[in-house]
Design a protein around this nucleic acid. Structure first.
Lengths: 343, 343
DNA sequence: TTGTAAGCGTTATCAC
DNA sequence: GTGATAACGCTTACAA
């Protein structure tokens, strides 16, 4: 039950003894265009304020076929990486006069589908989605049928939908290089959701860096099942049991890093003395771990902001922007979780 | 621009050579009530599916004066505490057929006001809000004017709006007692947003526990300015400079704890050897700090869930529930950040 | 410079 | 069992 409509445009008009047309025009900023007298304009504005009138969004939407609302779907809001992106999206949307509907897919493609349908039936004007990343047909179909979309974080190769991601390849390359420069050779790359594009790109960056040092890396790329603490823990645990141990871990996201930390602690090893660690994605707590962690920072603020900009462009121009795929730069934050083996 | 209305109810009806009334009835599950024939019912359902028809939510909203949408407002989505509450709210809303609009007030009461107005004009059926916590008139006014509200986390004393919070008093009492039992006497209580109710309640719990041990606590209650890392850092830094130092810190939320950690590291002190620490609010990373942190866990999942339940009750019954204020139990998670001084 | 009225797509009321 | 139609509140051609 919503607030009882204190006032509608008709009442307001009759109170002022003018037509609803005039009221509507003034309130939509078209007073000038229709050469409405200053006096009338002022009267309308004053009355609207006085009676706390604001147009009914259902009626408006029905007529104009738009809701001034965007939908956002992420796989896991409780992951601060996505939470920050959502925050940035909300902020930028607000600045542009849009509200945002939120949806959490829980890393589940079916739920993601349901959410998309739901949002469309709710008449969102466009959708920013960080997909689960396994399949994209459902997204593509909707996009082709005319729903504006922007994809964030988890791309799909060959999908012609505007996409904003971190420079995953570059970030991973930098991370691995940093380890190599500290004379690590046995660097284990702990994956999250193997099939997802950020994961693939990060592995590619890792691999290329390793090859540039002529180091074979095949056995060091460790399969994960998803971007979660549990997955990271399981893989790290497995590796730490084996001999010889890797000298360093490259965690492919923040949750994987947390899982590794757990395994390392369990084996009573310490960082960086016994094992070095670098993680993709900086978090608020990264610096405050007892051994502050070296990370690859992603600019979540920027990712969210650009996503909304691109989406609005798409909605307005109803045509696509030239720059379809955008990479946001990452940054290496050196802290104390990496030991130089030659020292 | 939303999807072109592939089909509307009129088209669907004419395709089937029946009236819109019948179609509407079937699709709203009123086939039985109006004794519509099995055959017709099936035809309608099949056709709806075939043409991908779903009712226009603007028209529906206009007619029924409801949106099946809830609004959620939090002070800081990037704080995982709120992110998890939002996640839970989204989940529970979805389960009950509601969408959720999200708003981030950025710990700013003006923004909070704007968001509330915005949501109301968007015709949300109700609002769950974790207010900034400084003032509540704007909320109360809207509530009294008929908008269903549920407040979460940051209460206001004497405000008769359904509220769900953690048992802040009890949690803080337990935390402090735990420190006392480990023979700490100089326990600094590092506040966040002093004026906010959770802060006040936690201080009350702290104070009562201290008094039960006959320990004067006045100078040990440290003023903060907000629930942020910076605030925690600043206060801890100040304390560590002074002599004699407290032997333990009680951080009034997760961000404050992070700030304390930063200060402690800066002074090259270690936990728990040099200083003990307990934090209100458990986080995913709490256990993975090199010194796993002892915390008071809050049941965010439950808080969000109950909030939505209460809100829906309020919307449905249009009357208030007997149980206006609800406390969700907290739990002490003992880890290694506290040293027993007698050992 | 202002007004009249049609129409957006749905549901509820009344009629048969 | 089913149907015609008014009404929800707004914007916008078209008129004046």
């Amino acid at each position: 039950m919503t607030q009882k409509p204190t006032t509608n445009i008709r009442e307001l008009a009759s109170k002022l003894n003018i037509s609803v047309t005039t009221v509507s025009r003034v309130l939509n900023g078209k007073a000038r265009q229709y050469r409405i007298s200053r006096k009338t304009e002022k009267e309308v504005r004053d009355a609207a304020r006085e009676f706390g009138y604001f147009p009914n969004q259902f009626a408006r939407g029905l007529k104009l076929d738009k809701s001034d609302t965007l939908g956002v779907i992420v796989p896991d809001i409780s992951n601060p990486f996505f939470a920050e992106i959502v925050m940035s999206i909300e902020q930028e949307s607000k600045n542009n006069g849009y509200s945002v509907l939120i949806g959490n897919s829980g890393e589940d493609t079916d739920q993601e589908k349901t959410l998309i349908n739901h949002f469309i039936s709710k008449k969102v004007d466009g959708i920013v989605i960080a997909p689960v990343g396994i399949s994209s047909e459902h997204i593509e179909r909707r996009f082709l049928s005319g729903i504006p979309f922007v994809i964030v974080d988890r791309t799909f190769p060959g999908l012609n939908i505007p996409t904003i991601t971190s420079d995953n390849y570059g970030g991973a390359y930098t991370a691995t290089l940093h380890l190599l420069e500290n004379n690590h050779h046995k660097i284990a790359c702990i994956q999250g959701l193997n099939e997802s594009q950020p994961n693939i790109e990060r592995v590619r960056g890792y691999t290329d860096a390793m090859r540039s040092y002529n180091i074979p890396e095949e056995d060091l790329i460790i399969t994960g099942d998803r971007f979660s603490i549990e997955s990271g823990y399981k893989q790290a645990h497995q590796l730490l049991k084996g001999k010889p141990r890797p000298t360093a871990f490259f965690a492919l996201n923040n949750l994987i890093a947390l899982g590794i930390l757990r395994a390392v602690t369990e084996f009573s090893l310490s960082i960086p003395e016994d094992i070095s660690l670098i993680s993709f994605d900086e978090q608020t707590y990264s610096a405050f771990l007892n051994t502050p962690m070296t990370t690859i920072e992603q600019n979540k603020q920027e990712i969210g902001k650009i996503a909304v900009e691109k989406l609005i462009m798409q909605m307005d121009k109803k045509e696509m922007d030239s720059q379809l795929f955008l990479h946001v730069q990452t940054k290496l934050l050196k802290r104390q979780s990496i030991k130089n083996l030659k020292e």
